[in-house]
Computed example of a mutant assay.
Amino acid sequence: MVQISVILPVYNGVSTITDTINSVLGQTFQEFELIVIDDGSTDDTVSVIETIKDDRLRIHQFENAGQGESRNRGAALAQGEYLSFIDADDLWTPDKLESQWQALQTHPQAAVAYSWTDHIDENNQFFRAGPHLTFSGDVYKKLIISDFVGSGSNVLIRKAAFDEVGGFAPHLTPAEDWDLWVRLAARYEFVVVPQVHILYRTLTTSSSFNLAKMEASSVQVMERIFAQAPPELQGLSQLCRGHRYKYLTYKALDLTPQRQRARAAFRFLALALWYDLSLWRRRVIWKVLLRATIAVVFPRTWVISLLKQQPKPFDIEALLFHIRFEV
């Protein structure tokens, strides 16, 4: 009997798809189906998937429509009472589904279970820890302030709740995860499983993260949030925008430094400081300014060498941890 439907959208994921699928098929919880949505891949992704023989695995091919639509397509095909999504380059620990399913059995009033996330590199090696927060129950206000869930590979959702709120909004990619969590939290409780179950892949040699697209979709999500939020939560707008621009600042300067992305970081930081005045008191802003400045002024190879030799003065991790959830 299928209890959980796992949805795996993939587009040209030949290099990681086998590891991702194996991390799903290796779950201790066995009553699931794995629905792979091929989003118009042009490489050998489908051929690779077809070499994996497991009765729980089904492949459906569509023309390219993006991740949000692919997730919705998978959900429409799902037979399970619960839905979980995993991106084609992420991994799960073996007890992910079992732990989250048990959490929802223990907390029948909750519609969403989430766990903690850590980051891995191209070689599946630990890269850095994610934020390990423990919010449960009514988390609507906290999710307005900031997306603490972290990624679409995290949650287990009751399918009835997913259907009721309308699923993912494909036009909001890549911020469609946050939009869905907020809409779910407006109606349902969440429950945390305080263990690392999601291994989010960070490509340490790449800067493919589309800053312009993420900023545009984030702005749209924030507009939707406050168009629907009750009057008593409208005052969170400044804080919400401040935190989002901190995140964008971090992403602009994370990993491989590039001159154009560093220039964007100056603008993002200015907006973060405008919206969140408390950030002026944080020493990390000087590290942000230093990291952005060297990326703009000096050759990239020199910057990479400097960051390897002297990482501490340029460490901007603290930018992500200065998030005030209590106001």
Rank of each mutant, 00 (worst) to 15 (best):
T134R: 13
T18W: 01
K246I: 06
I304H: 09
V165S: 09
D138G: 09
E98P: 09
Y200L: 05
K246W: 04
Q27S: 14
N64V: 01
L83C: 07
P311G: 09
P170A: 07
L253P: 01
Q234T: 05
D38I: 00
S278E: 14
V2I: 14
S115C: 13
S207R: 07
E176F: 07
G242L: 08
I37T: 01
Q228W: 02
V149I: 15
I49Q: 00
F32T: 07
R281P: 01
H107I: 05
G167M: 06
E69A: 13
P174H: 08
L307I: 02
T45G: 03
V193Y: 05
G167Q: 03
Y114T: 02
F190M: 13
S84T: 15
R263K: 11
Y275I: 06
L290D: 09
Q109H: 15
R267L: 11
Y245V: 03
T42N: 05
L97F: 07
G66L: 06
K142Q: 15
A186L: 05
Q3M: 12
V221C: 06
F162V: 07
S99D: 10
L289M: 12
W286A: 12
I37M: 10
N72W: 01
D89C: 01
N154R: 06
E317L: 11
V36Y: 01
E50N: 12
L279C: 04
L253S: 00
D118H: 12
P231E: 14
T293P: 04
I4N: 05
G166Q: 08
W280R: 13
I285E: 01
V221K: 00
V221A: 05
A160P: 05
L271M: 14
Q109E: 15
H60D: 07
I285R: 08
A216H: 09
L143F: 07
S15N: 15
A76R: 11
D177M: 05
E164K: 15
D39T: 02
A75N: 05
T20W: 01
S218T: 14
